[in-house]
Design a protein around this nucleic acid. Structure first.
Lengths: 218, 218, 218, 218
DNA sequence: CTGTAACCGAGACGGTACGTCCTGTCTTCTA
DNA sequence: TAGAAGACAGGACGTACCGTCTCGGTTACAG
């Protein structure tokens, strides 16, 4: 989380408990107050820690919140459900479950909004949150290829672009459903979404130029 | 924007020019400073207006920013490109163009983040921004149905759910691409995304229970 | 009180009732709020009058309060009590009675304090409040001279100086007793004060160089 | 001025230099602007101090001005001039000299006016300004009694009342001369005033019931 | 077992912005 | 043309946080 560069510097070492307490207090405050009303002084008080201690470890509110929220994504795992369809549903549901928590909603969107004007913050978010999720998409594809549900990629660059695209679609849809539409991304919704995504993925590769055939739905 | 109730109340009427100046100043400040560093005092100064005038018309920063950003969406139109595929690409591109503007990025995401803890703000966003966009999805579907590209909906409730889903997918993908991945939603990306969406929409309705057939890509 | 320049200007004449209502409202507000918390907007509301009307007639808070307080001194009269001693007591008691009223305390001292930095205000106070009181001292001396209690003045300039001195002593003592010591200037106090003043006045003229004889008091 | 209670509390101690700078800046602002136009923000700026520092130590403008003005009275000393007459003149002159300073004029009268509606403020003024002066009256009487110019008091309660009366007369006269009449309390005026006071004090005790003898002046 | 270096809590500090209130001016409608 | 109503520019208010600093005290490793 922070630099620990050399070996074991002289002097009193930093309290490890403080880190835990601060991040927990941050999430608690996010739930109660939301990002914009969260103050570092209040977080310090909740954590039973001096404001100085907090500033010694994080540069500011944004960095602190990124770390606090990032811990929520530690539990994200890709379950092996046997089919690509089930895997997609599984990972989307997990992502939706995390975004259903108020500390994630409040914290994540706000720091993303802040990151628009702050390159370092954007990088921190990417490293500690986004990449962790994107790994799941990669794992899922590899597994589907092993099963024969998806063909092995021919052009690796094109394949990377597709992963990015899928990730934006999945994460974006869940985020928009949860935050903007403010409706729960429940099982039914996830199933509908996964259908569209699956058909999009498996159908979109067939023919790049032919118009798609007319269909009954939606 | 504000009450317009009776006919022509007593006392000096509110300056219409002030509204315009304030909203423009707000967008300008959003571009330069971003949401979190935007100050109502600064906006007032830029607009050549007293702080009180600003507070007389808006309850706070969030309400002001929503109105300022909402004006950006006034220009959103659905072009009639002849085919569903082209229409989808067209509207996604337009939405992407708006989200490419820094005042939209900074403003929109921040107020959405704030709206998580503020029902009234969420409603204001829905009314002045979201609904305006969702109308385009409805228009596009009606047009596609006229052309015969999409069948008329049988269950109107199911149809409404589908519109919401599509909207979350489209808007979410563009938002995520633009803000989180911080890559431009350019023509190439939009074409790829529209392909997936089109196949998803036209293919997903075919058979609700059968597994999709294996495909080549990606 | 204010300009009334020519004869009877064209257009709607100023409401005379408004003046009365405004001054009464000013005194009422002085009692309830004191000078520093009194606002012209509040006075206008109490008087059932628009702020504009108020500003059309008075230049500001200070001028308004001077006029409002000056009306309190209209009732000041010098009773003919038969002896100089009784006359002094009588006028001091009257002055004390006015200063016992909270609107006088609050208003008078504040405008005097303001007048330190405002020549025009000082002149207005002198004209509408101070001179009115000083007249009583002049009357009292004339009456005492007629009775033979005081000798006629030889040097008119010296006499004027003495009147000023007496006035400062009398008014100053009552003001200080009432405001700074915050004790009532009741009959007992006035009697003690009048004794000192009377002996001072009648004894001080006797011998300008000789040291006063030792005495029993105070 | 503020609490000094325990030994050396935790945390960064308050800057002593700040107190000095703030009070000096307050007097400076009083001279330039007067009480009503004096701003706490401006005082803070002049003192090179943050507004918060100022509010941490004083409850408001009035308390601050009392303390700033009170320091002016620190220099007040009773000179031993040998006779009661000379002592009176000396102390009155000193008091007049302080009241001649614009910061005293502006500040003192305004806070006294405010104190009418604020018991705590009145007490603060009494403690830090009035009592300090009243001590001089006590010293002066004791000295005169040692010299035999005044008899020792028989009734201590009556004696206290007399001290209060004298103080109101002396302070009130100087204040009224300086502020209301707006004339300097110069040596000549002080001599005339001291004469009256001296005769009043030494003569008033002689006979409580007899009418004073007719005299030549004023 | 003793420096000493880095930590810790507490809280004052110089700042910035807040949202409210009041001032004195103006603009409109009504009488 | 006066008056009521109320919007306007401007500016001070007192509060809340920010991020920094200066204290007295406490660990825990190094000599």
């Amino acid at each position: 989380m922070q630099s620990r560069t050399p070996a074991s510097r002289a002097g009193r070492p930093r309290s490890a408990a403080a880190d835990t307490a601060i991040l927990a207090a941050t999430r608690e405050a996010l739930v109660e107050l939301g990002w914009s009303k969260l103050t570092l002084g209040d977080v310090a008080t909740r954590a039973g820690v001096a404001k100085t201690t907090l500033y010694r470890r994080w540069a500011g509110k944004n960095e602190l919140v990124v770390d606090a929220v990032a811990e929520l994504f530690d539990e994200l795992r890709l379950p092996d459900c046997g089919t690509l369809a089930a895997d997609i549903e599984g990972v989307v549901l997990q992502y939706a479950a995390i975004l259903a928590r108020p500390e994630a909603k409040s914290g994540l969107m706000s720091v993303v909004a802040e990151s628009i004007r702050d390159e370092a913050l954007r990088e921190r978010i990417r490293a500690s949150i986004v990449e962790r999720q994107k790994r799941l998409v990669l794992e899922g594809r590899a597994r589907a290829q092993q099963r024969g549900e998806l063909p092995p990629e021919s052009d690796p660059e094109e394949a990377a672009r597709t992963v990015d695209l899928i990730f934006d679609v999945v994460a974006g849809a869940v985020v928009h459903r949860t935050l903007v539409s403010a409706e729960p991304a429940d099982e039914e919704w996830v199933r509908s979404f996964a259908r569209i995504l699956l058909f999009g993925l498996t159908g979109a590769g067939e023919d790049h130029d032919a118009a798609p055939p007319p269909a009954e739905g939606p």
